[in-house]
Design a protein around this nucleic acid. Structure first.
Lengths: 194, 194
DNA sequence: CGCCTATCTTGTCGGTGACAAGTTGTTGGT
DNA sequence: ACCAACAACTTGTCACCGACAAGATAGGCG
């Protein structure tokens, strides 16, 4: 059992995150219960509480992991010529959100004020945002992050992908388009903007 | 007491909606509890259950009322010349969302599958959507609602306002802009699109 | 008067998050 | 080798929640 680290009753923290991810994907964040996770993993009802700052801490960790994946996806989308960065990154963004709708909703719904993996969450979140900025402007502007001010360019780009994705995830477009049609429309929007 | 209708212990349904609206505005939908509402109104803990199909039913009613207000706001924004419909309606949309952020989030987060005031919710929701269509195209296309298909025009318009608003409401832009700056940016986006 | 129905109350169930206190296993110092 | 300190986990409990069942109460109508 060298592979499973310290072992007292297994590597609980990792197991909790994996189990919670499964519940998240199939039933949404509201369905995640500390006691239920404990039950699924065969530990006592209070065990999960020792690995996160309460339920909110667990959700923060899930959100942070999501931002990490999103950032990696966006960064990977920029290995082509800069002229295609915006379109490719937008496509990657939407593809990520549609592949993990519940995770995406959690990432943008949960308050960042969580505290558990606060710095990790903030870091991965801003990493994703920097990728977005780079894609929109074909490179990173050389300014002090401290006095960064939101501009119309990135707001429009982010709003259109975030808005489309949220409308789809929340079922507002369900009766008006299939997923394939929705993706085609998003591609159309992205090439118009770019 | 003629004004308060039937009276057994007051017009509970209306009182519940008003109290729940207050809690919603100041603490969000998650803070709405049937038992807490009952406590606030001085009735027994089970009383609210007789007026809505459970907690979800109450939330649906709140969402439906929100869509009613939104639809009215959007319709009112189109009393000017058709050329200004899109910009004015967009502005009205964003203004509504920023004035009632928790309500707005509830409207687009809660599943429409609620059952309680399902037909009312669906009706007010599509009323708001029709206003949006009218604003985008300067009038309503003459098609059968049954075979309506989502098109790029309305998707882009809706996405950009919904996305911007959700990003703001969920605090993603907090550190990058003040509310006034955000509103100015939204106006800029709206006039570019229109 | 007596029934009927809508409204509200009381009681209870299983479930949940948070916390306190105790137990067990692991690790590291001597 | 031993023991202390620490981390991981268990047990127990609290207040809260939503949902339901069954009973009480009031108003309307015959």
């Amino acid at each position: 059992m060298l592979t499973t680290d310290t072992y007292h009753h297994g590597n609980l923290r990792r197991a909790l995150l994996e189990e919670a991810s499964a519940v998240l994907e199939e039933a949404g964040a509201d369905a995640i219960s500390m006691r239920d996770l404990a039950r699924r993993l065969g530990v006592s009802h209070a065990a999960p509480g020792h690995h996160f700052e309460g339920r909110q801490g667990l959700l923060s960790a899930l959100a942070a992991a999501g931002f990490e994946n999103l950032a990696a996806s966006l960064e990977a989308a920029m290995d082509g010529p800069p002229g295609e960065w915006q379109t490719n990154t937008g496509r990657a963004y939407v593809r990520f959100a549609l592949a993990h709708p519940q995770r995406y909703r959690l990432m943008f719904t949960t308050g960042i004020t969580s505290g558990d993996c606060e710095e990790h969450l903030a870091h991965q979140s801003s990493r994703a945002y920097l990728a977005l900025l780079k894609a929109v402007y074909g490179g990173l502007p050389d300014i002090d992050p401290a006095d960064y001010r939101l501009a119309a360019g990135e707001l429009r780009a982010w709003s259109v992908v975030h808005g489309a994705v949220m409308l789809w995830i929340d079922g507002q477009l369900e009766t008006a388009a299939t997923e394939a049609q929705f993706l085609a429309l998003v591609d159309e929007m992205l090439s118009e903007i770019g």
